[in-house]
Design a protein around this nucleic acid. Sequence first.
DNA 1: CCTCCTATATATCAGATTGATATATTTATG
DNA 2: CATAAATATATCAATCTGATATATAGGAGG
Lengths: 180, 180
Amino acid sequence: MATEKKLDCVILGLLSHEELTGYEIKKRMDTTLKYFWGASYGSIYPTLGDLVNRGLATKRECTENKRNKLLYTITDDGRRYLKEWLKVPVEKDEIRYETLLKIFFGNEQDVSQAISHIEAFQEKIEMEMQYLLRAESTLKEIVHDDNTHKYYLLTVQFGIKTYHTYLEWCEEAKEFLKDF
Amino acid sequence: MATEKKLDCVILGLLSHEELTGYEIKKRMDTTLKYFWGASYGSIYPTLGDLVNRGLATKRECTENKRNKLLYTITDDGRRYLKEWLKVPVEKDEIRYETLLKIFFGNEQDVSQAISHIEAFQEKIEMEMQYLLRAESTLKEIVHDDNTHKYYLLTVQFGIKTYHTYLEWCEEAKEFLKDF
DNA sequence: CCTCCTATATATCAGATTGATATATTTATG
DNA sequence: CATAAATATATCAATCTGATATATAGGAGG
């Protein structure tokens, strides 16, 4: 099979515990999943159409509240498809850090320029860390009563730990480059 | 401008300190850059053609050793283009971890299945860690005499630190899930 | 009540990229 | 001497991104 499309599984995963519109799916991608997966409207809407065509989801028009939205629901076949995908071993974990790329090519620029890339990275990570720490404390309270969010908590903790390490590296890297 | 193509800059970066064939560029991507950037033949060869068309690189046929290869060299314009790109602030740093995706949707599967995804991830990271640790000790020796590889060393150390944290998280996550 | 801004909501498209595949030669291994 | 692995280039369908277009709802302030 070609390229093995993952977005359909991601969307089915999101639909597995609630009905959602394409817009709402995009919001989940930009908040909850942001720290390890992304998707654009240009892939979400066509994929939703695909899922309906393949009988893995159903589409339902909703005109209440005057705004008309298209709500998508997972079908039994969709649930089966999702479970099958979850059984298959992970194919690829990938990082695309433009920051590391610009640091790697550091010899083509001033040391001060490399340092500003590190500092920009550091600020960005510090900002996102705020969000993750807030998410963690909320989730810890919830999980105490109801453990269905334990996996969400695990991914947030993955983010917090790695971001903490990134910040450590930033300090060390700046210190190391100071002498050149 | 559309999508802002980065591969041309990555290739120019690699060409900035040596003449390379498309095949050699792919090898660099699969070893040195693997831990923070990737590229396929399907993008490398067309991009090389593009760079030549735009005057940022030159192509030269080499028939010595009987094998005929196409060697690419960066031009002065190419060097200027690379330096300009390095000045521009980083646009995007992105992670795509299928492992975290499958863990996030853990409620749709058995706990044991989530644990095997964590274990597979752990093994993969342990393997890659070996390579990174070897690269680090080699680079440390080299950098001692000649600091042009200091940036390479920094990216390797980024990898080692984060991989170390990943391994810690794996242990904690398995311990946390054990009770469910 | 009206204007303006933001959020909600869907959709499409050019350009970029992946993963697979095809082809051919050279070098190393048994 | 066969054959497996490495070197080397190239192309393509399927996919995804980032940008853009369109339209309405709700809230804030004048």
